[in-house]
Design a protein around this nucleic acid. Sequence first.
DNA 1: ATTCGAATAGTAAACCTTTTCTGAGGAGAG
DNA 2: CTCTCCTCAGAAAAGGTTTACTATTCGAAT
Lengths: 355, 355
Amino acid sequence: MDIRTVAERANVSIATVSRTINHVPTVNAKMAKRVWEAIRELNYFPNSQARALVSGRTRLLGLIVSEITNPFFPELIQGFEDIAVENGYEILVSSTNYDPRRMSLCIRRMLERKAEGVAVMTFGIEEPLLDQLAERNIPMVFVDQGPDRPGISLLKVDYHHGIRQGVQHLAALGHRNIAFISGPIRLHSAQSRVSAFSKSLTECGIAINQDWIIQGDHTLEGGITATEKLLTGSRLPTAVMCSNDLTAIGVMHKVYRAGLRVPDDLSIIGFDDIHLTRVTIPPLTSIQMSRTELARSAVNALRAHVESTTPHREYRIDTKLVVRESTGYPPGTMQDLRGLSANGEHAGAGKSARH
Amino acid sequence: MDIRTVAERANVSIATVSRTINHVPTVNAKMAKRVWEAIRELNYFPNSQARALVSGRTRLLGLIVSEITNPFFPELIQGFEDIAVENGYEILVSSTNYDPRRMSLCIRRMLERKAEGVAVMTFGIEEPLLDQLAERNIPMVFVDQGPDRPGISLLKVDYHHGIRQGVQHLAALGHRNIAFISGPIRLHSAQSRVSAFSKSLTECGIAINQDWIIQGDHTLEGGITATEKLLTGSRLPTAVMCSNDLTAIGVMHKVYRAGLRVPDDLSIIGFDDIHLTRVTIPPLTSIQMSRTELARSAVNALRAHVESTTPHREYRIDTKLVVRESTGYPPGTMQDLRGLSANGEHAGAGKSARH
DNA sequence: ATTCGAATAGTAAACCTTTTCTGAGGAGAG
DNA sequence: CTCTCCTCAGAAAAGGTTTACTATTCGAAT
């Protein structure tokens, strides 16, 4: 069943049917009504491939993420999809699993399916591969950094703001020995987070201990491994900041395994503020990077390029600290309060600090 | 740039190029080589819409899930994608968010994009809507139940096996007061899990207390709310089984908030065995339903229909108990052991039971 | 030498739309 | 009443591929 069937049924030409479907204003209201009726009766819907083939417009936005099993990304995908659909686009999601081979498959898929724009949310560097997209003038959005070309916009995340809040929060509680578990340092975003951390430490007058800056990989397991390294070190920090929440959850787990308590023995701060932070034990203090903002800006940027309405080169994304219960005073301070919390009441609740 | 450009460059007709690309055996090796070279030099790739339009084959498999932010689903999607790609298919994922309106959008998208087969992994009932797919003879896969028509396969999950193992495990530890937090009971799968639970209790000679069968909604919040209900009841169960892991994590959180300990005061068993169960505090005993199995069977079933090689009507999916540390003896028993674990060593590790 | 058949390249139709261009009909102006 | 202009429906081309059909070449069989 195709547009011709509808045309016959409504007693009009296929051109009229097409125009009706696409809401072209020059079609007579009476005829349009006949057409819509025929469409409903036949349960007709247009063939998107034929449509795309002739019009050159697929109304498809690509989204490349690194890992779909990291809860951060599904939340991002959800937002991206919602906003894309709101604007009449469909989305095509692909994940790289940090594998350059898969990255090139992703790109190929975007090309084959003729995505009109692609958001590259891998938080990393795969530029050489992405040249294929640039060559074909497909608008793109990157996070943090990207080639300076027309058709490319950047989502500039202000890591420093949130991370500084985190460090200040810890400093205010009395922490001076703060470790950082980074993401894979080949990722821009991971580097930016580390340097925002270092900078913030300096701002707070805290010395940087290189042994306490450990490379993780943004996974649960990475958090666990990094914590093992930290625990076997000569001196323990009193607080750990993590490059993402999954890492932080891994840290919490390992700390628990080691018989230590959060935040009594160690304060922990995550990054991303995924939904799960609300139910970890104790709930995780984290630096929020809004998925909705990220998604909205990405879609808007791509739309602006596609529909050639003055796109911006950069879109700013805020981060901010969300204090929960995984941060508290460093061990050895406030012994009076600590004594009080040793009864039936559970750890974090009684003594964790709130801003 | 199109197939014609390639043809000119390789000095052959477009038909030969097409045949080369599609590995049609009747093309002369020498020419094929020339064609491949031209393709590489031009960086050509075929237009998938044009291809699909004329051949009628999109090589696209649809996957409809209920919720992308529930970690179970990304794990499932990942598996589905991997196996689909292995077999030369691409996938089109859509989530319903338990909203019938979104479900019909999902279906429409599947139809418009001409998915060759659709796996409906919502674990629920939306059959009337899915008739549109059935009408057009699109092969489908459902979990547990589905209309009995040609072109439709079922993934029969053996809930009873895993859940019985769970109940037996609890019974062996001495539990007699076991609650169950179900999913939304309009879902087949949720119903099946409850009835498998009830049946298992009976098998173990444990009385069923209807007050302890509480409806949740497969979310963290649902787990928290259900636990609140449980806690305000006149009598507390000593163990809780949950219809999924997210619910269980919600329960653990609420139990922690209430100042109770897992498993000392309450044993908890989840369902699904998502990756996160390994790092909850304590690690969650859960009933495993393999995402890989589910994904593989779904893809295989769809392939069998599409490629019309004898598809099966049913594919069996196993479940099995994975014991971790959220289950232990009920409170009030084994006081001797309990006393021992009150020192620095952390709760679960010392006294939780392993099979 | 002629015919036949196999192998394989090329031609053209088909897939289903959108969109440009053409043309019909009606209204308004002279 | 005729002419012009405007509105809007229809015809037809275009988009990039696959594939059925046709054509060519070459070798083998008669």
